[in-house]
Simulated scan of single mutants.
Amino acid sequence: MLSFNELEKGVDIIIDNQPYRILEASHLFKGRGHSVLQARLRNLISCNIISKTIHPSENFEEAEIKKIEAKFLYSYSVREKFSNGASRRKFIFCKKDNPRDRFELLQEQIDRAVYFLKPGQEVQGLMFQDKIINIILPIKVKLKVIEVSPGIKGDRAQGGTKVIILETGAKINAPLFIKEGDIVEINTENGEYVRRIESTPLKEDS
């Protein structure tokens, strides 16, 4: 069991039989030496984020999360839709060392990772009680630019940003010098452009 003083950012605990990761933890002092912990936690199965006030008298069981090396294969639409009518998708993965050993996760389970997943992308699978419950992307991934917003002739490297569309369908802001076909590096934790990895030759005007 984890005591009150052992609860901090990054620790995995069990609440109502579900694994949660502490995202933020700050002590709030109430006077006379008494304090509580204000925490934000993410459910590692559903990705839902909750806020919780934890008191010194509370103890929590540590969630034992194991990691395996895995690879994303493909996704497909399922019959059930979201409440707004949008299609839901299932994402199929396999263990890195055994392509036949596969598992699937729903779009809402992997949350923002859907924006940066392409077939063949290596990930880490999270296992809880012998079941794979979610995946973690590398902090940085390389993706191809398939479309850019119109630029202004004469734009220079430090002149601002524009919207680009990646091969996964994600839209992000990038420097004005980024072109269609470029390979760029993306930070998957905040969804931001990091740098250009490979540049495509400029097309000559006809």
Rank of each mutant, 00 (worst) to 15 (best):
I45Y: 07
L44E: 06
I54E: 05
R42N: 10
I45E: 11
S46R: 15
I50Y: 14
N48S: 09
K52A: 03
S57Y: 06
E62P: 06
I54T: 10
E64I: 08
R40F: 10
C47V: 14
I49Y: 04
I50V: 10
R40S: 15
K66I: 06
I68Y: 07
T53S: 09
E64L: 08
R42I: 13
S57T: 06
T53Y: 01
F60T: 05
K66S: 13
E61Q: 12
I54R: 06
N59R: 09
L44G: 09
A39F: 00
E58Q: 07
N59G: 06
I50E: 12
I49V: 14
S51P: 13
T53Q: 11
I68N: 13
L44M: 10
H55T: 09
K52P: 02
I50D: 08
L44D: 04
I68P: 03
S46M: 12
T53G: 05
I45T: 15
H55V: 08
E69M: 09
I65W: 01
N48G: 14
H55C: 02
I68T: 10
E69Y: 09
I68H: 12
R42P: 14
C47R: 15
L41E: 10
N43M: 01
K66V: 13
I50G: 08
T53H: 03
S57G: 08
E58F: 04
P56H: 14
I68V: 07
F60A: 00
I45S: 09
I45L: 08
E69W: 06
K52T: 03
I65Q: 01
C47Y: 11
L41R: 04
A39H: 00
S46I: 15
C47D: 15
K66D: 11
K66W: 09
T53L: 05
E58M: 04
N48E: 14
P56T: 06
I54S: 08
I45Q: 08
I54H: 02
R40T: 15
K66L: 10
P56D: 07
R40N: 15
I65M: 04
L44F: 03
H55K: 07
I68C: 08
T53M: 05
K52L: 06
S51G: 15
H55W: 07
I49D: 12
E69T: 13
E58P: 03
S51A: 11
I49Q: 12
